[in-house]
């Protein structure tokens, strides 16, 4: 899994690539690297367009990113969700908690 960040307005955009899943296999490493890359950033747009599969550990990573942004007085927005990822969030009602947008442009402009 490769993670990269780039600034887009006041949002720091976090992109996952090189692997289509966030699961118990890579969740801990992904979480640590993502938090490290985000550093002190408070407003984050998490681009999940490359992620096909996510399990409970992967969801835990997203919750951690969401909490991290709140702790810093900002907000995390998730965008580019594939149907499999979206349905998982819907099952456990996190779609009611997270801020979800269709794509990065919508997320950073909202």
């Amino acid at each position: 899994m490769k993670l990269s960040v780039n600034q887009d307005g006041r949002f720091l955009r976090l992109v996952f690539s090189g692997c289509d899943a966030i699961d118990h296999v890579n969740a801990a490493a992904v979480k640590a690297e993502a938090l490290s890359l985000l550093g002190e950033a408070s407003d984050v747009a998490v681009d999940l367009s490359e992620i096909e599969f996510i399990d409970s550990a992967g969801i835990g990573v997203l919750v951690a990113l969401f909490k991290n942004a709140r702790l810093r007085g900002g907000r995390a927005r998730f965008c580019g969700l594939r149907p499999g990822v979206r349905s998982v969030l819907e099952i456990i009602r996190l779609d009611q908690i997270f801020e979800i947008y269709d794509d990065v442009q919508a997320a950073v402009r909202a």
């Binding site: 996510i54 409970s56 550990a57």
Partner: peptide, 10 residues
């Protein structure tokens, strides 16, 4: 989520 087995949401 940490208590949930990996396959629970698969």
């Amino acid at each position: 989520l940490s208590e949930l087995p990996a396959d629970a949401l698969d």
